[in-house]
Design a protein around this nucleic acid. Structure first.
Lengths: 212, 212, 212, 212
DNA sequence: GATGAATGAGCTTTCATTCAT
DNA sequence: CATGAATGAAAGCTCATTCAT
């Protein structure tokens, strides 16, 4: 938890630091994040970072928490629990796209924190965030099965894993394509290509890859 | 590339060192792999490791290369290119399972090297291995589409990503389950549970998640 | 020497700060005393402490000076110089005990400042306080010898050292016993045990440890 | 506990490092001992010190242990347990003096470690060394009381404290006198002054300070 | 070639002190 | 004057790499 010193800072400065932390922890593994780099980027003394936070781990967890909150805010806006998950993927193209645009680093950070091996705090993070997140997904799947939106002859947990994997790789592919095509920070990508890709993805999800 | 000193070693010793390297790089992120640990495990002096290899990175790349070869050997045995990919997944349960058992560390290493963020050499690895691997998969998919084994109205690249993601998460789930259920190194898991899970997974892959 | 800013403070606030400083320097070695802890305890900004004093060392020396004055005040009340030192130890049990109760932190601070190695200013302190304190004790001893209160066939300096050492360890033993038996700040100890211990101690002092 | 790397070193080098550590920990409080200073003095890289020991605390405890052993070796030579404690002090002048000459830093280190406030490991040290040392002294006193060497109407614990305090201050006085009179490392002091001081000290111990 | 001790750059963290408000 | 955020030197510790034997 950040110290009071941090919380008392002007919102603008807090955001500057938070965003720098998210960016750094999102693009490098924990061990390669150099606090003095982050400090330099914020034009703040290295020591100040330790006035704001207990230690590096504190910065990391704070960073994850903020990223997670920002992400959840987006999801809760959609009342995920009571939505047809297929419709959700199908209709929310634009908003997902925008989320990925706006919360790109947050997204990358969370993926890394949850799925990469490079954190010395994997178990803690898993305990704190991941379990609820997979459980949450499984809940949605169960609800969708009960409503008859999706097939109910498959273990909801397996569907969850299937969904997570396929969609994570899909998103990663899209993000990397976007990042490669423009090294700037603008993160522009042909929206049409993206729409088309997502709609094909949905088809695969719904209908499978088998020839009919 | 290992130095001549290494290549001249007795095959037995070479294997010992290679396996230790694979195991270490497979279970820890690059930065947490301590060369002196590896050396100790091989009962070899730390300095010797530097007689055999240029540096840590050299060891890492050598390790990936071996793991990759071992894996490809398994795939080529099956004439992957000319197989029905659905049949492949459906019928090769046992052999996949055994592969995961025998080449577990190789498998984990490759997943980590290719998909985790914690390597300082991500781009190099991507350039050297991943592209060919994904290209390889896409070739198979194209062949499968041409033969009429799978639908051809979807971009083969997207199918590839879809397959990679869903199956990676699936395998990861299975492996972790197996690792959790027995802390020993024996890596045993109820084969029936595994068979059932895979068959459900294949159904999803083939038919999609939509209610019929 | 405290700055004018400090001296101009309301007496109440000055005492608050002085007492907090004494307590902190008495219970922790110099290097572990954190000025911001002291400031927090006084509900004063850390920066203010530096408006009051030049630096940490200034605070330390001021603190010792006050503790020393408070102690001397107690001694002079008794006209130490003209007292029979044996009577003094024997009869002043209660008052010594009370002094140790009321000026416990002062006492601990002085012991630490004078005899512990952990001050970077040992020599300075020795120069400033200890010499006069030992000289003072030696004066008393000489007076006692002249009056025939104690033996005069021993170098008064050696008697002084003997007295200092034996009584310091004795007091330390008693204080630690008191502190261990109650973690509270009340500093209560069975007065009877204490009286008995002191009277045995006096016997040893007077008569020595030899069998008669 | 030092690492194998240290134990494998040439005895000469081990001694060099051990002695440097003893000297530094004996003359400065724990927090002021800078490992890179010690390393520099041994003409060894800072990092090497950490090849030899786990960490600074490890160095400290190793240092105390060696000093303690060296000291005990001296005491056991004298069969302390079965000696008349007064004779011991009276007759062993020369050997005590030589011990103080040879093991000066060891002596200072132990005093500091056992009695100063500045160690973050006070309790651990107390547990490991001090308890046995005071218990040992009390055992000797009880034995002396039983043999009729010293008075038995006083609590042996109190006699122990009395003895510890008086003799510690005495030794300290002597050592500091010796150190002040010659800044060199030769540690010479007029042996006659010393003998005289000790014999007066013994008198006080035996007969007390009271006028006969 | 094998060994393992030696090296030092590089990172995290602390805290007395300064300084802008 | 009071405040408390900002500073940066300094210390502990790690580990890939080198090097003398």
């Amino acid at each position: 938890m950040p110290k009071a010193t941090f919380l008392n800072l002007a919102q603008e400065k807090k955001d500057l630091i938070t965003d720098a932390l998210i960016k750094h922890f999102a693009t490098k593994p924990y061990h390669l994040v150099d606090i003095s780099d982050v400090a330099k980027e914020c034009r703040v003394a290295k020591g100040s970072m330790y006035q704001y936070f207990e230690n590096k781990k504190d910065m990391y967890f704070y960073t994850i928490e903020v990223a997670y909150e920002r992400f959840l805010q987006l999801l809760t806006k959609m009342d995920m629990v009571h939505v047809n998950i297929l419709d959700y993927y199908e209709n929310s193209l634009e908003s997902v796209w925008n989320a990925m645009k706006d919360l790109r680093y947050e997204y990358m950070l969370l993926e890394m924190a949850f799925f990469s091996h490079d954190s010395p705090f994997k178990d803690e993070i898993n305990e704190k965030f991941l379990k609820q997140s997979r459980d949450f997904l499984v809940e949605i799947i169960k609800y969708n099965q009960k409503q008859g939106f999706i097939r109910d002859d498959i273990d909801p947990l397996l569907i969850g894993i299937f969904l997570e994997g396929a969609s994570f790789y899909m998103k990663k592919f899209i993000i990397e394509k976007a990042l490669n095509e423009n090294n700037t920070t603008t993160f522009e990508l042909d929206i049409d290509y993206f729409k088309d890709a997502i709609s094909q993805f949905i088809k695969l999800l719904k209908e499978g890859i088998a020839k009919k």
